[in-house]
Simulated scan of single mutants.
Amino acid sequence: MSGMQPAVEFRAVTKRYGAAAAVDTISFTIARGDLVTLLGPSGCGKTTTLRLIAGLEHATEGQIRIGGKDVTRLSAAERDVSMVFQSYALFPHMNVLENACYGLLASGIARKRAEEMARSKLALVGLSGFETRLPSELSGGQQQRVAVARAIVLEPEVLLFDEPLSNLDAKLRRHVREEIRALQQDLKLTVVYVTHDQQEALAVSDRVIVMNAARIAQDGTPRALYEQPASRFVADFIGDANLLPVTVRRMDETMAEIRLGSLALTLPHRGAANGSAELAVRPQAVRLGEAGGLPGQVLRAAYLGSHMEYEVGLAGTAAELFVIAPDVSTPIPAGTEVSVTFDPAGLAVVPGS
């Protein structure tokens, strides 16, 4: 088998329940050793897509290939994948080693060999010395690592994570997502990861497939999705963009003059035609107080420790801007008149809007 074969390939896959399509004609490939996240709101089709890879659901149309092999009609047991569930699904009455061995024993491997294989994987995830502990004696992050060890002990082609951090508090989420990413890179695992949390997706992924209403809205690197959203949905879903109506006047193959009220900005037009369009403005790209901008007024101000958050009304429009500002030493009180300017690095014309 060629080393160039993708680990996972979807070819025009559809999954219907009755007349409703949970997944509608989606195609993508996942390269070996990559962590690819399926991201989107509830009901967008991301979990169904993961279950289609796992063989827990079967495609109505299209073809699914894993490691170059057509698995469209194969059962979950016949596919070379392992799933790490949301709740980790550890057996509470079994110790760490017994939990890690479970899949091996279930597949008929002798106990001595199974324990050797499980110990080596527990060492890989940093849990040597924890073999006799029960899950209740472990932290959330350690439980996550037992679940990963149990999943990789079978050395699957693809490891699947279904919302693995949703049961953890915010601080632990950050720690465990860093652990998952480090393990994935150290062990060169191919991972498909489902989340509805944009920050989590940006932090762990080589690539993100954003889904909306059973289809792929955009597929790209975290930076491409954030800096060059392909649609209004992606701009808004990833990174809280402010979407403002603008006028576009194309100047050449790539650049255009963008008019936002009395401001003229020169930006890539990204295929937008002359006339009206929308501009995605990141909250961090709004500057308050510098002269020569658009007149506005601070409507609300909130202190969040590391930064300030403001809602700013633009004079003469119904637009309210969500603004994140790093300066916490001199906050701007609500009611203050401000001049609003923008850092071009945080602006993108939204094509097709």
Rank of each mutant, 00 (worst) to 15 (best):
R181M: 08
P164D: 13
L168V: 06
Y193D: 03
L183Q: 10
Q198A: 12
T190I: 07
N212E: 14
V192I: 15
V210H: 07
T190C: 08
D206M: 12
L189Q: 05
E179D: 07
V191G: 14
I180R: 05
R173F: 00
R174A: 12
R177Y: 02
K188A: 15
V210A: 14
M211P: 08
V191L: 14
Y193Q: 03
D169G: 02
A182E: 14
D186I: 14
S166T: 15
V192L: 09
Q184I: 07
L202H: 09
A213R: 08
I209K: 09
Y193N: 02
V194W: 00
D206P: 14
R177M: 04
L172V: 04
Q199K: 04
L202W: 10
L189K: 07
N212V: 03
Y193C: 02
E179Y: 05
Q199Y: 00
R207P: 13
D197A: 05
Q184N: 11
I209W: 06
A213L: 05
D206L: 13
Q185I: 13
H175D: 08
Q185C: 08
T195I: 03
Q185K: 15
N212Y: 14
L183C: 10
K171D: 01
K171I: 01
Q184M: 12
Q184R: 12
L202N: 09
L165A: 09
R181V: 02
A182G: 10
Q185G: 10
E178G: 15
L187Q: 12
V208Q: 12
H196M: 02
V192M: 11
T190Q: 06
N167W: 05
A182D: 11
M211Q: 07
R181N: 10
L187P: 12
V192F: 03
V204W: 04
P164S: 13
I180Q: 06
V210W: 09
S205M: 07
A170D: 01
N212W: 07
V192D: 02
L189H: 12
L189F: 08
K188E: 15
